[in-house]
Amino acid sequence: MSGAAVIELTSLSKRYGSTPAVDGLDWSGGRGVIGLLGPNGAGKSTLLRMLATVLAQDSGAIRVFGLDPAVADERLAIRRRLGYLPQEAGLYRNFTAYELVDYVAVLKEITNRPSRRDEVRRVLADVGLTDDMHRRIRTLSAGMQRRVALAAALLGHPDLLVLDEPSAGLDPDQRLRLRTVLSDVGQRATVVLSTHQTDEVAAFCQRVLVLDRGRLLFDGAPRDLAGRAADRVWVSDAPDAGALRSWVTGDGDIRNIGMPPPGASVVEPTLDDGYLLIATEDGART
């Protein structure tokens, strides 16, 4: 992870009615792939929309590339270096995949036709849609439509890529391809993505943030998140009443997190364990 801050958030807040979606967030991040974990309603999408300059904060400040998205000129400058994949991409259903990505390329001011054609083909190849690029959006599966939207976000080699659940609806093969693409992008740019897949975070994120109710519960490397649950995870034959959370694993064992009882069979924690421990402890506190 590069030390140069591409994103800086200072006391950032956003409310919907009386519900805080993002609650006084202070954070900064630079180059690399940053994963955003959190339950539904944690404020992930709201935060990403603010980073993508399409939603204004209620209070606090955002700086992207050192620029303020609230200022029109600076917002435009940010947008010229930004790629964004929203949860719902609003694709034009009558366009073919190629036409749609080409259209977005023009929206991103890529006007030179030969270079635009090459760029559109490149991003469609990156998401594995070369063979289906001339099919209309409405005839594509949900996963393929997601890949079209992702291709549009990748246009123009953005310096900041903001992705809201990029792997939703993708099959395992496509997820693997996505990891490769995003890891490559993360070498030279900042990628911020939200996900519910902790294995995804473990696989290619250099940094992970855990959000809940708009507050930052964890910020660090994925291994450190797993490390939070060191000596706090044990397996048993029956649910442990003293555990914070217990669940049945695929082997039929009961996996518990919390404070293990004496003599418990403590096991190596995973990212899932770390995430669940933090989220559960925070839930218990509030």
């Binding site: 590339f65 050192g66 400058a77 010229r80 023009v106 890529i110 006007t111």
Partner: peptide, 27 residues
Amino acid sequence: MTVVLESLTSETPPTDRSAIVELARIE
């Protein structure tokens, strides 16, 4: 606290008119 190293000039060129013309051609 992180120091912001990457910064753009505040003199941002306005929206590219040739892009609007190209969009009009597609439309």
